[in-house]
Nucleic acid binder design. Structure first.
Lengths: 336, 336
DNA sequence: TTGTAGGCGTTATCAG
DNA sequence: CTGATAACGCCTACAA
């Protein structure tokens, strides 16, 4: 059973102060004898040592805890990011409190408050809007804030995003080549959301003058919005697109479910592009290009930004852009 | 800017005690005058009020924080569960600290210790082995512990699991009917893992006497283990199975990737069964049956178990079995 | 080397 | 109704 400082002191017939001194690494400074240190360390090695983290937090005004706020954990990108970030933080002695907003601004604000009341040392947030972003910036006051995934602008704080524009350009270019003369459509979800906006921008940039007619929009980025857009497409064209890009996985899921409704299957000759990578994209027989976001790099950059801020140096600021990686799955020919 | 109790007291020329009394809802009990309450509430409504949760925790010896330990967050089942549980806890005033073990017992033990040092009021754990489960049971001592997903036995504590055995029976029965006289294989991952073991048991129960020849095993439940088993199958039979059940999604992903390697596509006539539901299963053209686990019910049961334990009544105990739901996707016929 | 005292912000108790 | 005060356990000076 693990021991408290007091128990160690009595067991070893030493003073509490002495125990604390060596346990807090001030042994040399206070010239504690080597044998005493030995004894203490041996004892701790055997039984363990339990600090009351709460009391410590009260005194030192830091909790060694960080907060992470994401829209949804059930989104693979965010859950992977959370996983990587949690490990990275833990390795550095921080625990992560993860909260999830369901993309609801009120949830989000409540969550920020709840975490701040618990005295988290810093906050990672995927903001849902400019308003809420500013709301947080106000609240956190002297605690570091690192924004993730969405650049709403108007902020001096640290920000980590994927290079969505570049990624979209690359994806569009490659798919254009594969798609031949047929139009390459873009099924965008919520075009107000900065990441989506950037993806659309990259697409536009490559498509040139007037790709507006090839862009479909929906208010949100959910599966049902993907279905909606593909249904719209069918109403207009009475057939499936030769090639299209989905602005995110849920959009793709929705769009493909409509194709399946219409045809009874997903026509394998359609060229499919999407953002975010998932092993199950391999279940499709189509040519599939996916733009993977590098969660490891995200976690690393986000954490270092947080760390420099925590160390009290510069206030965290500056945008980090992380390149995306293209993954291509060749069309699978069913030879029966 | 939010105010501390002290700031409010000085601003309103009242005593700190008075402020606390009304803020903590003891106004009536101590017969604070209505106008004083008014003044305080108005002030708080305007400026807000910030408690120091840390000091409160020190005094009350509770942190209003719960811990959740899962193998991986990037696994959709666990991330969905985490999401539901987090919301459920938050609604009840608890924050959730989520940690992730990568199925590594050492990680897991460290994590339990870290959370306990932070004085979480209770712990939800998906244990990776009987040893670690017992290890935790020792450590938590007087904190409630609720075990999830895996029944290693030998425990009196609360436990929430899916009814894997019943689910497997149902799945096997339905697939048998669809599969005709062809053998229905079972690609199991780590058969030591209780959830997998139960699934296998349900399968065996329906298959009767000697299905051993139709069961493949691997040491773990990762994608590469799925690949391994399907490769073994090919070495033996030089063709794909007519129908098979994967013990979990990663296994399925691995198995199908091998089929794609072998054939260049995933033969649509194969009947596929799997545990855990995912929208992307709709990307397959095959007949697909998936057994969905009901995360809402999990979160609800796990939380109520925790809550009764926290309220100090009975020590948490007893197993809750949550039924699975079968989802069937019809084979999609490609008419080209 | 070791002991002691003050204070972190809250709650609970007791005395006005 | 209101004010004062003792814990909660830890850290840090400072004294011995």
């Amino acid at each position: 059973m693990v021991k408290t400082v007091e128990q160690i002191a009595t067991a070893l017939h030493l003073s509490i102060t002495t125990i604390r001194l060596v346990l807090n690494g001030k042994a040399e400074q206070y010239r504690i004898s080597a044998k005493t240190q030995e004894r203490i360390h041996n004892y701790v090695a055997e039984f363990g040592y339990k600090v009351n983290h709460t009391a410590r937090s009260l005194k030192l005004n830091k909790t060694d805890t960080l907060g992470l706020i994401v829209p949804r954990l059930s989104n693979l990108f965010f859950s992977t990011l959370a996983e990587k970030l949690e490990i990275r933080c833990r390795d550095a002695g921080y625990q992560l409190m993860i909260g999830c907003t369901y993309s609801d601004a009120r949830h989000e604000n409540k969550l920020v408050e709840a975490l701040l009341q618990r005295n988290v040392d810093g906050l990672f947030v995927v903001p849902s809007s400019l308003q809420s972003q500013n709301h947080h910036a106000k609240l956190v006051e002297r605690r570091p804030l690192v924004l993730l995934d969405r650049d709403f602008g108007e902020t001096g704080v640290a920000l980590v995003v994927s290079d969505n524009c570049q990624g979209a350009e690359q994806l569009t270019r490659v798919m254009m080549a594969a798609n031949g003369s047929a139009p390459l459509y873009f099924l965008a979800g919520d075009t107000e959301q900065p990441a989506i906006k950037m993806r659309l921008q990259g697409y536009r940039r490559v498509m040139g003058e007037n790709p507006g007619q090839w862009i479909l929009e929906a208010g949100h980025n959910r599966q049902e919005d993907g279905s909606l857009m593909m249904r719209q497409f069918f109403q207009r064209h009475h057939r499936a697109p030769q090639g299209f890009i989905a602005s995110s996985l849920p959009i793709l899921e929705g769009a493909l479910s409509v194709l399946r409704e219409q045809y009874g299957y997903i026509p394998a000759e359609i060229n499919i592009g999407t953002f975010d990578e998932h092993a199950m994209l391999g279940f499709l027989s189509n040519n599939v290009w996916s733009m993977r976001q590098n969660e490891d790099a995200w976690a690393e950059h986000a954490f270092t930004a947080m760390q420099t801020a925590l160390s009290g140096e510069a206030p965290p600021s500056g945008k980090v852009m992380i390149p995306m990686t293209m993954i291509h799955r060749q069309r699978a020919f069913a030879g029966e």
